[in-house]
């Protein structure tokens, strides 16, 4: 009975083989490094782990990392949907070019992105000079960290939402209009709920990516402890001190917080799928 349970959840042949390959690859690529990290944490013990994480400097770094990632991802969520909408629904000159450019943040080494953004937003840079009279400082402040994270997270929302908008039936919107709904009402009650699951997936991906981002942020953040020092940099600093345990402790803290956040997003996603009958 147990064997048949494992064997045939699907009438499709080849389950055993493909499941085996999937598990092997998943274990090597994802589970092994994560369990190594958690294993190190178990060896240290929860009490010591807590002691290593529980300092003002580490809490400010964690708070900064998650706050900046959240702000950048919310921005990307809104802006990404708009961008995807424009790319799908309108035909204009250079659309293909813009479409291709969306992927560039994936391709560009993050350090290059960080250095370019810093050069632009530094007080003597093109944007920095323009913003200085208004009293706005971007480079070497938290604002700069947001900019870097927005840059690296943008493609996620666009690329997850875009295919869903393409699939969206125009007829549904037209029916909504013939039934007397105003455009904003249609957008709010018909279009957005359909996009919500995909948009949330993109949001979660962008968030996860931003939380751990190191390469681009260290160039544009001032890296001042308690102010603009991100958690990944603290991990690197702990490694420089050969304090592998403390580095693992911060890593585990980030892992747990990220896991809780992604879990919450997944729950919202399930709820929003149910709402539109896409179980």
């Amino acid at each position: 009975m147990r064997a048949s349970l494992l064997r045939s959840p699907s009438p499709l042949p080849g389950f055993g083989l493909s499941f085996g390959i999937m598990m092997a690859i998943l274990s090597i690529v994802v589970l092994l490094p994560l369990s190594a990290l958690l294993g190190r944490g178990l060896m240290i013990g929860p009490a010591d782990l807590w002691d290593m994480v529980n300092s003002r400097r580490i809490w400010s770094a964690l708070e900064l990392s998650f706050r900046a990632a959240l702000i950048a991802s919310v921005f990307n969520l809104v802006f990404g949907i708009v961008l995807a909408w424009v790319l799908v629904r309108y035909r204009f000159w250079g659309r293909k070019l813009v479409d291709a450019a969306v992927d560039l943040p994936f391709a560009l080494p993050t350090a290059v992105a960080g250095i370019s953004l810093t050069a632009l937003y530094a007080p003597n840079g093109v944007f920095g000079q323009a913003l200085a009279p208004l009293g706005i400082k971007v480079a070497y402040t938290e604002l700069g960290i947001w900019m870097a994270l927005i840059f690296i997270g943008l493609p996620f929302v666009v690329r997850t939402v875009q295919p869903v908008i393409e699939e969206l039936d125009r007829e549904v919107e037209e029916v909504s209009a013939t039934l007397g709904a105003r455009r904003t009402y249609t957008l709010r009650r018909v279009v957005l709920p359909t996009l919500a699951p995909a948009a949330l997936t993109g949001f979660a991906l962008a968030l996860a990516r931003s939380v751990g981002e190191y390469g681009s942020v260290i160039f544009i953040a001032g890296n001042i402890p308690n102010l603009t020092e991100i958690a990944p940099l603290l991990i690197v600093i702990r490694l420089e001190e050969y304090n592998y345990d403390a580095a693992a402790a911060i890593g585990i803290a980030m892992l747990l917080i990220s896991f809780a956040m992604l879990l919450a997003i997944n729950l919202i996603q399930i709820w929003s799928r149910r709402r539109i009958g896409l179980v």
Partner: peptide
């Protein structure tokens, strides 16, 4: 009095000489 704490010497040189900080 340090507004930017880079991770390596070259980074600091860049911050000071290229970014004007």
């Amino acid at each position: 009095n340090v507004p930017v704490l880079d991770t390596a010497a070259r980074g600091s040189t860049t911050t000071f000489s290229q970014r004007g900080i």
